[in-house]
Nucleic acid binder design. Structure first.
Length: 224
DNA sequence: GTCCAGGGCCTAC
DNA sequence: GTAGGCCATGGA
């Protein structure tokens, strides 16, 4: 199974090259993007981040000081804007209160300890916490998302019903905890998911479909 | 017009 | 503990 996972990584990286995922000019921006992208297409998130920058709201202090309605309006394009505005402010309050608003100080905390703290914040669940840990704090933790489950299960690697924690532990058991590797692998899965593996099947050209000729032979479209 | 998107919370059972 | 409803915009 370890071999199959390595093969999948190889096929995707050969197809796409380096993804340099996650986009963002700073660890704080990455964390904000992680909250804004909850159940939302990335294109809508990009607009919200551009707006935040235009309005000079992309700092923990400014997000808390500005009127709630102003923040909501700035992130409107990302959907669920009332909920997300509240979630952003909860995260900013935590960052300011515990670490003086410094992501680097937050990142200095041990992985499991910090993960627990993030999960205790309202509006931050496992995926958002792990996005922040891996991409904003450079902690070696693999991010599971809808694409990961869809692709891995369609490749016959895991059951679709596998839970978040179980899939994460499964990957941790097969791939050494290396930050850059986890970042790239997740980025490749996101790109593959966007291009080929939405609920509506878009098989032609999928790099995993080509793998039928290789040893791993992923039947990645078996459930279509 | 309809469907869908990289989640997470809350409620009911 | 888990299934289902809800939150909302914008692109295909």
């Amino acid at each position: 199974m370890k071999k199959a996972l390595e093969e999948l990584y190889f096929l995707l990286s050969r197809h796409y090259g380096p993804t340099h995922w996650w986009p963002g000019d700073s660890p704080f921006e990455v964390a904000i993007g992680a909250i804004l992208t909850q159940n939302t297409a990335w294109t809508n998130v990009t607009r919200a981040i551009v707006n935040l920058k235009k309005k000079r709201l992309l700092s923990p202090r400014r997000m808390l000081d500005t009127p709630r309605e102003t923040l909501e309006e700035a992130i409107r394009s990302s959907g669920y804007y009332r909920q997300k505005a509240e979630r952003l402010r909860i995260f900013c309050a935590f960052l300011l209160d515990q670490y003086g608003g410094r992501m680097s100080r937050m990142a200095a905390r041990p992985l499991e300890n910090l993960r627990e703290a993030l999960l205790n914040l309202k509006g931050i669940g496992p995926e958002t916490a792990d996005d922040i840990l891996l991409y904003a704090c450079n902690k070696p933790i693999f991010v599971v998302d809808a694409y990961t489950i869809r692709i891995f299960s369609r490749c016959g690697l895991v059951e679709e019903s596998i839970g978040y924690k179980a899939l994460q532990q499964w990957v941790h058991g097969h791939i050494a905890p290396e930050v850059q590797c986890y970042k790239e692998f997740h980025g490749l899965l996101v790109w593959t998911g966007k291009d080929f593996c939405r609920k509506t099947p878009q098989c032609p050209g999928c790099p995993l479909a080509l793998s039928r000729n290789r040893n791993a032979g992923f039947p990645c479209h078996r459930s279509y």
